[in-house]
């Protein structure tokens, strides 16, 4: 099992997101006042300053906006991984998140911009929180 770093709490902006992940949901806030999607999650709306936000549940599907394959990372937990991807995923509900595309034979060849992907919650060797990653549909 992977050993990705865990989110650290208390951290009020992202805590509801991660509680959602633990329950198998990809949640995102929207602004009650101006309806914009707020991401990364915050305790205010960056478009209008409102503090009134509501959490919604994403279907977890989107496309790869861009990606890279990391060949060299000296951080513990990643040194042993070999080449792995990082990617910005544009979710169909309109938010962009940093994540990783997994489940391909060779990340240097099998990932491309525009590729359709779906979230999955990857269990970790240590810690309470699985990490949301994406697999090609």
């Amino acid at each position: 099992m992977p050993k990705r770093p865990q989110p650290r709490f208390p951290e009020p902006n992202s805590q509801p997101f991660w509680e959602g992940v633990r329950e198998g949901e990809l949640r995102y806030p929207t602004c009650d006042a101006c309806s914009e999607v707020v991401f990364y999650p915050r305790l205010h709306c960056p478009f209008c300053g409102s503090r009134e936000l509501s959490w919604k549940v994403s279907r977890g599907e989107g496309s790869v906006y861009t990606y890279s394959v990391v060949r060299q990372n000296r951080m513990p937990g990643f040194i042993e991984l070999g080449a792995y991807s990082v990617a910005y995923i544009d979710l169909d509900e309109g938010f962009r998140m940093l994540s990783s595309v997994v489940g391909v034979d060779d990340p240097t060849r099998d990932i491309h911009i525009g590729q359709r992907v779906k979230v999955e919650f990857e269990p970790q060797e240590e810690g309470d929180y699985p990490i949301p990653v994406f697999r090609p549909i």
Binding site: R4, R8, E11, S14
Partner: peptide, 13 residues
């Protein structure tokens, strides 16, 4: 953690 690191650190970018 903070609002950005909690969303980025798990991915090893």
């Amino acid at each position: 953690g903070n609002w950005q690191s909690n969303m980025e650190l798990p991915y090893g970018s």
